[in-house]
Each structure stands twice: as structure tokens, then as C-alpha cells.
Design a protein around this nucleic acid. Sequence first.
DNA 1: ACAAATATTTAGTTTTGTCTAAATTTATTT
DNA 2: AAATAAATTTAGACAAAACTAAATATTTGT
Lengths: 220, 220
Amino acid sequence: MTLSEEDYIKTIYHLSGGQEASISTNAIADQMDTKPSSVTDMIKKLSEKNMVNYRKYKGVSLTEKGRLTALSIVRKHRLWEVFLVDKLDFAWDEVHEVAEQLEHIKSDKLIDKLDTYLGNPRVDPHGDPIPSKDGEFKKSVKKLVSELPVGSEGVCVGVNDSSVAFLKFLDKNQISLGDTLKIVEREDFDGSMSILINKREMRISDQIASNLYLEVLEKN
Amino acid sequence: MTLSEEDYIKTIYHLSGGQEASISTNAIADQMDTKPSSVTDMIKKLSEKNMVNYRKYKGVSLTEKGRLTALSIVRKHRLWEVFLVDKLDFAWDEVHEVAEQLEHIKSDKLIDKLDTYLGNPRVDPHGDPIPSKDGEFKKSVKKLVSELPVGSEGVCVGVNDSSVAFLKFLDKNQISLGDTLKIVEREDFDGSMSILINKREMRISDQIASNLYLEVLEKN
DNA sequence: ACAAATATTTAGTTTTGTCTAAATTTATTT
DNA sequence: AAATAAATTTAGACAAAACTAAATATTTGT
Ligand SMILES: [Mn+2]
Ligand SMILES: [Mn+2]
Ligand SMILES: [Mn+2]
Ligand SMILES: [Mn+2]
């Protein structure tokens, strides 16, 4: 697989959203900032290689082979993102570009060793799941902290209330997007809860909990 | 710079051996496993970009711009090699291929952070010097341990006597190629010396010292 | 000094991945 | 059910990086 082929496969995977959806030529072209005619050319090549199912004018979908290829690239991308944030101290929102390059490095041994070195992480710095070597992974969903049961663990990925007051509160309490949050206990009376944020324990009100989004793995 | 241009620049740099030498088309073609005609094509392009000085039939040499470009690639290559050995636990002789890929990743921030993370190493796992960000570095030389003054530090890179007996001795005493060795003290009487091998102290005879090669940085 | 050998460049193709413009198919309106 | 609009494919071209075969320059041996 060439670098360019890998990028197409990955784009088709992401546009499919986990489903076996049929993706249009124009959707791929838009996403990749290229022309529809270039997409058609590449699709034909990928079809030859049995990476996609293609019917003229009807769009493409990944074959099982294509899906596994996509997952291996996603796995590499997300492991490198973990490396950049955990080991090299990059901020969570500046790792994507570099990971786009690193994901194309070819060496199974490298990825195995990187995975081990990082402690076999299940999610990347954005809370997205990291597929296993054989292409298995749990989907992740974005939910308000207030909607999740005790014991849930995930990554802070957004806010509902983007008022200055709320953002200042988060800042003062050292809660940043990209932080890992675990729900330790909830008080039924007022909905307040005790949480672990980056391994530090603190207590938050229901009002906070219902304005903070967490990316968590779905349980099977 | 494309990946291919970078590989040519790097090859010309290595063939020049630090000198301002004129490198022949065929030498580059041999080294890169390509055809002389392909080399000529690429040389013309690099000459357009002021990376090399080129006179038809007379060979090429790097310009200052080309030399700095080469050094930045060499820096990346060697830093990644340190990462692979020190952090990911690769053996010193299995890192080159992967580093050949990693050296082309484009991100100044990445290399700065990697350098810091690795503790600003001066040499790679093969004892070769790592150029600084602005292209400065000490040359390294390969010498027998017995030829070096007390205080010298370097990487074990080869043996003079490759008899089974000597290799077995090294193995039994846990001395491997790639290990870091420092000369602590020498006994004038018999030439025996006390050394630090991977931070472990031991004593070796002159016979051992005169059969083990060390790669050390030249002092300025 | 000159012929033979070797090195290097030129000319013409090929493959990959992209593009524009034109043709064709599919979807949407009236 | 046309007519029109939008999406998609085809045809032809181009740039990058490689190749083969042929032409030209340089070096070497006598
Ligand atoms: Mn990313
Ligand atoms: Mn991510
Ligand atoms: Mn190397
Ligand atoms: Mn090296």
C-alpha cells in the first residue's frame, strides 16, 4: 500500500462511520481536498486490489480486507498520538498533523513495541478507541458526565455551556480538555459527584456534571 | 524537499565523508541501487534548488545549504535510533531500516521534544555523533580500546580478533556491540585497565583492550 | 597520440497520482 | 415525462521519479 492509497482507505473508513455505508465520490473528494476525477481513478485501483467494493456511479464501501487495513492505520495514528502527548508532552490539540505522517511508517515490530511502551492504551488523547492488532475495538460515545453511571471513565472532550464563567471555573479547578475523568461516587440527593480527574480527587456539582462532555468506550 | 530528494542529499553527504569532495554519478547510483541516468536527472533538480554544485561530467558536491539539509536529516535519523534502542528496546543492529523512514517526518517541534526526551544524546547507538539543531557536531573515530587515553568514552563497535574464544569471552562477560564503554584507569605495568561497561565496573587485560574497537568522539 | 574502455548524459518511455474539460449517468423540478 | 441540475466518469495532459537504449565525453592503456 502506498501512502496515498492508505489515505484514501482511511478517509473511506471515517466517512463510513463504522457502518457498511456506500460513500460517494464527491464526499471523498471534499474530505481529501482533491477532485472527483482523481477519486474515481484511485477507487478503481483500490477495487482492483480488493480493498473496496465499487459499482460505477453507486459509490464505494470497504471490503473486509479494506476495513482491516483502515483499522491498522487508525491504530498506528492513535498510538502515535498517545506517544506525543504522554511522552513528548505535546498538547492534545497539536498532535494530529504529526500523527498523520507517523501513521504511515511501516514496521509491525515498531508498533508492537510502541504499544507495550505506552502501556497498551485503549484510547487516544481525544478519547477515541485504539483498535487492537487484530482489528477489534469498542466504539466510543460522547456523553454528559451527568448521564453516565458511577464507575465510568473517559476523556473530557467538550462543554455544553461555553460561557466565560464556566470556562473560568474549569480553568481554576485545573480541568482541561484531554484530561482523563472517572466517576467515583454520586450523591442521589443533589446529583453532585466525586470524580478522579487525572488521578486527582475532587467533588463537582450536578450543574458542572451536566455541562461537561466525556468520550467513553461503549460497553459490549 | 521530497522524500527522494532527501535521500539523494543524504547519500551525497555520506559519500563525501565530511569533506568538500566531488562525488561521481556512478558512486551515487551504486550506493542508492539506482541507474546513473536517474541520478543525473535528480542532480539537475537539486542543482536548480541550490542544494548541490554540479558541473556536467565533473560530479557534484553539496552547497552549504545542502550540507545543512543533510545534517538535519542525519540528526533526525540518529535521534530516532536512540529512541528505538533506549526507549523501545530494539537491538542496536535492527534500528536502521525503521530510522530510514522516521528521518523523513516533518516537524521541528517533534524533533526538539524528542531530543529533550532522550536527554540530548551526543551519539547514536552505533557511536556516531548527533549533529546539533544548527548543524554542528564532532566527528567520531574508531579506535582500539588500548589506543585510547584514560577518561575516553565510546560505543563498542567491533572486534579485531574474531576468534570463537574471544567472542565467547565477550559473551560471558556481557560485553556486546552497542554497549557504552568508559576507561576508568590504566595500569602501566601490564596495560590492563578498569572500565565501565554500561555503567558496570570491570577489569580487562591489555589483550582484551587491543582487540575491541570503540567509536569515540574526536576532541576539538 | 590514439584507440578502447569507462563514465556520464540525453532521448524517449513508464508508473503513480494528480488535474481540466468534456461526456455520460443519475437525481430533481416543473 | 421532459427538462434541468448535479454527480460521476472518461479522455487527455502533466509532473515526479524511475527505467532502457543510444549518444557523447572522459579516462586509460599502449
Ligand atoms: Mn488524529
Ligand atoms: Mn485522535
Ligand atoms: Mn542508521
Ligand atoms: Mn546509526
